[in-house]
Amino acid sequence: MEHIMTITHPYQWLTVVWWLLIGFFLMLYIILDGSDLGAGIFSLFDSNSKERGAIMASMAGTWDANETWLVVAGGAIFGTFPLAYGSLFHYLMIPLMVTLWGIIIRAVSLEFHHHSKRSTVLWDWGFGIGSVITAFSAGVSLGATMQGFSLSSGPVPSFNGGAMDFLTPFSFWTGITAVIAAALAGGVYLRARFDRDTAIYRKAMVWTDRMFYLALIAIMGTVVWTFFKFPWAMSKWIGPYWWAFILTGAVVVFAAWEMRRASRQQRDMAAMMWLGVIVVLNFGAMMATLYPWFVPGTMTIYDAANPSNSLTAFALAMTGFVPVMLAYNFYQAWVFRARIQEFSSYGH
């Protein structure tokens, strides 16, 4: 990696800023599309076809924008960390490919569902299964990234391992965890989205109750496994800033408690916000643990970054757009904020 450092020699703080921004995009994707994916998972267990249609209708105006945060994260990685983009994505070929298939199934199901009469059931299934596949394989990809991968030597080191390197018990487990976490988010989202006297709302209440404990177990499991499996994580967590991680953990527990309370008292918006807090804290802790690695043990953010000239150009051209993107996305979500009824359909 020596000569990469000498030719790239990036402005270090810009590298950090863009790494944080990409983390931010990914986190937004997890929060926003996580709810949509979870609602899709929920729909698999809802036997009423009209209700499944209403669930799709509830995200009609926003699912595309929510999903696009993943594309923004991908595009920004290509733009700012091309050395990671070219090797990490190659390493993740199979899980990313499956994620893409899931996204395709879900997108066409959402689009075609309301045009169809005879094939409605097919698109219902497509929507649910596409959601499960996307959540699972995205979770596997994240877990696989934690494990790192092997690089060739040479001026530009690229991935030289096998196609199945990504698959280990750990990455499989993170896939399962992602599905469970999304399922919880979906339930919480549906409760905030539907009228309280609808059947979906009542079903979502039972659903969130169960998923809350499952998600708790799954996330705790992931944290413990990470601690014992990855030396880079262990050394961070028991290192000089151990108190910060302990504190974050305590706040997460508190937020989970508050979410549970809000959920019980049917303060649905508050429950959704507390869940958001949990995701932000967990994701933040993950980023803090990772630093300075982009992919642990494989490349640091400085190894992966663009040469300074390109990184500066990217920062100058794009940073200003970030608040603009946030603003119009917020506006769009705001326009479609009303609670809806279960007889709603995906009408134009």
């Binding site: 700012t80 983009y85 390109s310």
Partner: peptide, 12 residues
Amino acid sequence: GPFFGNILGYET
């Protein structure tokens, strides 16, 4: 990446 990746990033 230093050029092509930037442009794709601009696009997204």
